[in-house]
C-alpha cells in the first residue's frame, strides 16, 4: 500500500508541484515553439510522454549496470544524450515501418525532442531523486513529468489563442506578450506549493 501511495505522491508532485516546464524551466523551447495551436500542442505533449518513458526505460539500467559498476557516474550526461538520440532515431525508423499511422501523427515532433532538455532532465533527475528508488518508480516519475508537460502545453495553447485575438500594444505583439503570459502561467503554478505534503500528511 505504501508503495502505491509513493507512486501517487510522485505522479502528483511531478505534474503540479514540480512541473518541469513551469517550475523548473526545462523544455522551454517546445513550450514556446509548438504551443500556437491546440492540436499541435497535444501532439507534442504525447510525443514527449512517449519519448520520456522510452528514455527512462533505457537509461535506468544503463546507469545502474554499466556506469555505476565501472565508477563512471560522471559520464552520465554524455552517455544519456548519446543513448536517447539513438533511441529516438531507432523508434522513428521502427514506427515508420510498422505503425505508419502513429508515425504520421508523432513523426514531426520526434526528431524535435531527440535531445530536449526536459527528456534529458527527467532521466538524470530520476537518478538523483531520493523519492525514486526502483525502476517502476522511475517510470511513474517520467510519466508524471510527461503529463505535466502535456498539461502546461494545453494550458498555454489556450492562453496563446486568447492573446492572438486580443488587442495589445504594438510593441508587445508576438514574442514579448507570449513571454509575459508564460511568466504568469508559471506564477500561477506556484500556488500548488505544499499541495502534496498536506494531502498525504507527509
Amino acid at each position: 500500500m505504501d508503495f502505491f501511495k509513493g507512486l501517487v505522491i510522485i505522479i502528483m508532485s511531478q505534474i503540479l508541484v514540480d512541473n518541469y516546464v513551469l517550475r523548473q524551466f526545462l523544455g522551454i523551447c517546445p513550450f514556446l515553439g509548438v504551443s500556437k495551436k491546440l492540436n499541435q500542442a497535444v501532439g507534442m505533449g504525447f510525443s514527449v510522454i512517449f519519448v520520456m518513458l522510452m528514455a527512462t526505460a533505457v537509461t535506468w539500467p544503463i546507469q545502474l549496470y554499466i556506469l555505476d559498476k565501472n565508477g563512471l557516474g560522471y559520464m552520465q550526461t554524455i552517455v544519456f544524450i548519446l543513448v536517447i538520440a539513438a533511441l529516438v532515431q531507432f523508434v522513428e525508423i521502427v514506427l515508420k515501418k510498422f505503425i505508419p499511422a502513429l508515425h504520421k501523427s508523432l513523426g514531426v515532433y520526434l526528431p524535435l525532442i531527440t535531445t530536449n532538455c526536459a527528456v534529458l532532465g527527467v532521466t538524470i533527475n530520476n537518478m538523483n531523486d531520493e523519492r525514486v528508488t526502483c525502476f517502476a518508480e522511475s517510470m511513474v516519475s517520467s510519466l508524471g513529468v510527461g503529463l505535466g508537460f502535456l498539461l502546461a502545453m494545453v494550458i498555454f495553447a489556450g492562453v496563446r489563442s486568447r492573446i492572438d485575438e486580443s488587442e495589445i500594444p504594438e510593441r508587445f505583439k508576438g514574442l514579448p506578450a507570449t513571454l509575459i503570459a508564460a511568466s504568469f502561467v508559471s506564477l500561477s503554478f506556484f500556488g500548488f506549493d505544499g499541495l502534496v505534503e498536506n494531502i498525504f500528511k507527509l
Binding site: N70, G71, M75, V79, L82, A86, Q89, I93, K96
Partner: peptide, 27 residues
C-alpha cells in the same frame, strides 16, 4: 581508458543498431 572504452562501446552499439535498423526496416 575505461571511460573511453565504455562510451565508445555504447556509441558503437547504438551506431550499429541504427545502421541495421535503417537497412532492415527501410520503407
Amino acid at each position: 581508458l575505461m571511460a573511453l572504452l565504455v562510451v565508445g562501446l555504447v556509441g558503437l552499439i547504438a551506431g550499429i543498431v541504427l545502421a541495421l535498423a535503417s537497412r532492415f526496416f527501410e520503407v
